[in-house]
Computed example of a mutant assay.
Amino acid sequence: MYSFTNDYSEGAHPRIMDALAAANMDQDTGYGEDRFSLAAIDQFKRLLNRDDLAIHLLVGGTQTNMIAISSFLRPHEAAIAAVTGHINVHETGAIEATGHKVIAVPGAPGGKLDPAAIQSALDTHTDEHMVKPKLVYISDTTEIGGVYTKAEIEALHAFCKAHQLILYLDGARLGSALTSSENNLTLRDLPDLVDAFYIGGTKNGALLGEALVICNDALKEDFRYMIKQKGALLAKGRVIGIQFLELFRDDLYYQLADHANHMAAKLAQAIRESGYRFFTESASNQIFPIFSNSLIEQLRKNFSFATWEKVDVSHTAVRLVTSWATKEDQVDAFIDALKKGAKSLSAVEK
């Protein structure tokens, strides 16, 4: 059984495992103040060309979103997200559990937000009898594989600045976004366009780890207190620092993300050429083809993947996710199984 369920089924890239093993018996300071974590933070500042950034290394995406958003907002303030946004759907109410409402609005194609969608939330939250929209949450890539262009984020940045809103970018799959065929954004662009964002490691070759980058000075104060209070100040913080040092040495981070995107593109091309439709278009490492329920049952004999949304009584959109470690021969095997399965089904079922 080969998995296309997610992009963190494997452990970590061998170079990361080697780096962790090499430093295993070294003694160092705890709580992210070790030489590896500090070097990783300095490395990010050089890559981003900004010395004034506050960078914190955290364990996972939901943890990062929850701590960042709850710390940035006052008690009566809320976050705006697309209906499909991760904080709205797949974080077990983590933001709400801190006392902050998530205002869900319909997204543009690909699950992206645009100024019109944000304005709709502002128009319906007008006084102190409702929560006050204050933070705009976007992710790149989105939860359904959409990739933001630089112009789209520039438009969001301008809108948020004009309306005194915080723009926060979830970068769990930022590697996939930056190496996507639809992307014209660079990592160095982000500090000038958003108030905070994070660089995801967990879904791009690391055992664990996300690097939160706070760009807005007003959001930086006492943030380590917030991390500690939420139980996220990792005693052996160097475990994350070592991984990010390795990921951004010799562009490994981008190479791994590019491989994931390439494998997804190969799957998508073969699926499209076989006559199947897609629930949403994606140029990332997540694709969402629509298969008959009968075909899904056949494919699941040898492959695991997630069902995403029922399209009609006999068809369902599924999610296929590729990773830094996806084997091309398994992509070929899936394509072969798809073609064989299609032959055994009627044209109506397809």
Rank of each mutant, 00 (worst) to 15 (best):
I118Q: 03
I80G: 07
A317N: 08
I166K: 12
T98G: 02
L47W: 03
L174I: 15
L48R: 07
S344G: 09
Y2C: 11
L53Y: 00
A97D: 06
K101Y: 02
L178I: 05
V331M: 02
F334Q: 06
W308E: 11
E91N: 14
Q27D: 05
H163M: 01
L58V: 02
Q286G: 14
I69M: 15
F197E: 12
S176G: 04
T64S: 14
G237L: 05
I16G: 10
F223C: 11
H100Q: 08
D251Y: 12
D34T: 10
T149M: 01
H157P: 01
I166D: 09
N49I: 08
S323N: 12
I199H: 06
D18G: 00
G111W: 11
G145D: 03
T29V: 14
P133N: 08
T126L: 09
M130Y: 15
H129N: 09
H13G: 05
D7C: 13
K132C: 05
P75Q: 09
M1A: 10
A264H: 05
H90Q: 00
Y168M: 10
D51K: 10
A97H: 05
S181A: 14
D312G: 14
N204C: 14
A108F: 05
K301A: 14
A68Y: 00
V239G: 02
G201D: 04
S346G: 15
S274M: 03
N293A: 01
L53Q: 02
Q269D: 14
S3C: 03
G341F: 11
